[in-house]
């Protein structure tokens, strides 16, 4: 498996969020654990942190709060 970059992890997280949209809310740690499972030694917590920051800063994702802070798809992205 090629070494992961923050951008590639961000893309994988974004794909996962699309899969789960409307089914289950995911927190930052849920995404992090899933990525580490998916990419093994090519991924770590720091990389995941950078990836989430990319998703937030380019507005693909946003945070929502319902009894906990979740990472969700930004409904306004691309509008």
């Amino acid at each position: 498996m090629p070494a992961q970059t923050p951008e590639s992890v961000a893309d994988a997280m974004y794909a996962m969020l699309k899969d789960y949209a409307g089914k289950k809310n995911l927190k930052a740690m849920d995404l992090t654990k899933a990525m580490i499972e998916k990419f093994g030694d090519d991924c770590d917590k720091q990389l995941c942190k950078s990836a989430i920051r990319i998703l937030m800063d380019d507005a693909r994702c946003t945070y929502s709060y319902v009894g906990g802070s979740y990472v969700v798809l930004n409904p306004d992205y691309g509008k």
């Binding site: 920051r53 937030m56 800063d57 946003t62 945070y63 709060y65 319902v66 969700v72 409904p75």
Partner: peptide
């Protein structure tokens, strides 16, 4: 009512 999807870009708090 409850909150929801509001915040400044990039921040969750």
């Amino acid at each position: 009512k409850h909150g929801g999807l509001v915040g400044v870009q990039g921040y969750g708090g």
